[in-house]
């Protein structure tokens, strides 16, 4: 197949040429030539707004430490693959149960990893005037560094005076370095300053490896970006944060997040272990232990 191969080769040369053009922007190539190629250049230079401008602290921590430990902690030494369901067979479970994905064979390639963080807010004030949404929009943009996407309502509900197609909230999906930066900020700055928050419950997780948490409007002002010019945001809004991971169980997802220093509540199960456990996790669990 000589023809497609040639065309492939040609395209490869073209793209490498463009990259060279871009990298020698200031010096060798003069401005007029650059402007002519601008439309092509923009395609090469800005594939998306994803720029890796340095090594991420939490990513390094994950690859150097957390990954190794998760392998030890979650390795299933007696793994048996689930029998596959043949085509055309419909499995019906009793009650309110549904089929879950089969657990993957233990392997270095299946260690749980953080994939994305979704930040989402819904503002009731937007029902009165859609311009009320701008405050939450700007707040989310400030704390994540990315422009949110506006969410419109799918259905109208008369009781809430909601009509289909009204802008009602906004959301941002973070991946890569920005995701780790946000997690870092959350864990190091925001969560320690949330008063009387006992940590994520032990039951957190949706059984398929994702963990979600909600924040009250007061938590928004704890972010350093908001705190510095609090006056500019007329309405503080609560928001939801969802951590999506490749873990297949709640336990794996919780282990992964606690590897990033996310605080979790604990139940005291054994009388012998109670005093040491209570002292290690602060006043909230002491109260709990005494209550139990």
């Amino acid at each position: 197949m000589p023809v497609p191969r040639q065309s492939l080769k040609g395209s490869a040369i073209l793209s490498s040429h463009q990259i060279r053009l871009a990298s020698t922007k200031g010096g060798v190539v003069d401005d007029s030539k650059l402007q002519k190629d601008k439309s092509v250049d923009s395609v090469v230079l800005a594939p998306k707004e994803e720029y890796t401008t340095g090594v991420s602290r939490l990513r390094e921590h994950y690859h150097g430490t957390v990954q190794d430990d998760l392998m030890v902690l979650t390795y299933n030494h007696s793994f048996k693959p689930k029998p596959t369901i043949p085509d055309g067979v419909r499995v019906e479970l009793k009650g309110n149960k549904h089929l879950t994905p089969a657990p993957k064979a233990p392997s270095p390639r299946h260690i749980p990893e953080l994939v994305k963080i979704d930040i989402h807010c819904m503002m009731k004030e937007a029902l009165v005037s859609k311009y009320n949404l701008l405050s939450g929009f700007m707040a989310i943009q400030s704390i994540t560094g990315e422009m949110p996407e506006i969410i419109h309502s799918k259905k109208g509900v008369h009781l809430w005076k909601l009509r289909a197609g009204n802008p009602i909230g906004c959301k941002v999906t973070l991946k890569g370095d920005k995701m780790y930066q946000f997690l870092d900020k959350l864990v190091e700055v925001v969560l320690p300053r949330m008063k009387e928050w006992p940590g994520l419950p032990e039951s957190a997780g949706d059984a398929t490896g994702n963990i979600g948490m909600g924040f009250p409007p007061s938590a928004m002002s704890l972010f350093p970006e908001i705190e510095n010019n609090f006056d500019m945001f007329p309405r503080m809004t609560g928001f939801d944060v969802t951590f999506s991971t490749t873990a297949s169980t709640n336990l794996e997802a919780r282990l992964l997040l606690s590897g990033f220093n996310m605080p979790f509540q604990q139940k005291v199960r054994f009388a012998a272990a109670a005093p040491s456990a209570a002292t290690s996790s602060g006043p909230s669990s002491i109260d709990k232990a005494s209550a139990v």
Partner: peptide, 19 residues
């Protein structure tokens, strides 16, 4: 602190969660 905290957090749960 991140390293220390993370493993201060992990063992608690590990011991409690899967006896």
């Amino acid at each position: 602190r991140a390293a220390a905290g993370s493993f201060a957090a992990v063992p608690r749960m590990q011991i409690q969660a899967i006896p």
